[in-house]
């Protein structure tokens, strides 16, 4: 009850900040689009981008743009010096974590909505197996947002965190990346056998959805 209310208040605040200064979302989207274009250049063969690279390009672009927005996730609190205040609510640090993870999920979700059609367009690919791709993207984004928010929150006071964040985040979300690419490529080829990979992603999500807020609370307690 309290957790839900405080979370909602914090989330509303973040949404309002994001709505008033749209630049962060705008720049993240721009970055994602540029990423796709650069990948298209990188994989250009005989004048046409090769279709086989679609899953990899899609997932790596999502990972890169999610780390871009993660670096700015706690920026409002840092700049206002209010991190201690929002961490010490009546319900502890949990509302802060949930609201930030939700923000990150919304951000990366919007990026996905833009990037997916763009990748398909640039690489001349038809979207097949939409259900499986969507499931993989959903599970992948939830996992990346949870682990990413944890990493971002833990690194707030650390020097050189721009460098450290990818160093911690990328190895940790490697299972999501591997499974996501696998599911997407199977789905695009209308193949079979995505079940195991989706289960792996689900287990990853469940594990880190439970563990991350706990670790966050433990690590940042005063």
């Amino acid at each position: 009850m309290t957790v839900a209310r405080i979370t909602w208040l914090l989330l509303k605040k973040d949404l309002r900040i994001a709505a008033r200064s749209r630049e962060m979302l705008g720049f993240t989207l721009l970055f994602a689009v540029l990423c796709v274009i650069v990948f298209a250049f990188g994989f250009l063969q005989e004048g046409a981008a090769t279709a086989g690279y679609v899953p990899g390009v899609l997932w790596v672009t999502l990972l890169f743009s999610s780390s871009v927005s993660l670096l700015r996730l706690f920026a409002p609190e840092e700049e206002g010096g209010t991190l201690d205040l929002v961490s010490s609510t009546a319900a502890g640090t949990l509302p802060l974590f949930i609201s930030k993870a939700t923000m990150q999920l919304l951000f990366t979700g919007l990026v996905t909505v833009v990037v997916l059609p763009l990748v398909l367009l640039f690489f001349n690919t038809e979207l097949k197996g939409f259900g499986q791709t969507a499931a993989a993207l959903g599970l992948g984004l939830v996992g990346m947002a949870t682990v990413g928010t944890l990493c971002s929150a833990l690194l707030v006071h650390v020097r050189l965190r721009e460098v450290l964040l990818p160093l911690v985040l990328y190895p940790t979300v490697a299972p999501l990346l591997i499974s996501g690419v696998k599911v997407t490529s199977i789905a695009l080829a209308e193949g079979e056998g995505t079940g195991d990979w989706l289960t792996l992603m689900l287990i990853f999500d469940l594990l880190f959805v439970v563990a991350s807020p706990w670790l966050h609370g433990r690590a940042l307690q005063r």
């Binding site: 833990l154 650390v158 670790l215 966050h216 433990r218 690590a219 940042l220 307690q221």
Partner: peptide
């Protein structure tokens, strides 16, 4: 504690 949390996550 942050380092410990990271190590646990590993």
């Amino acid at each position: 504690r942050v380092g410990a949390a990271m190590a646990v996550m590993g």
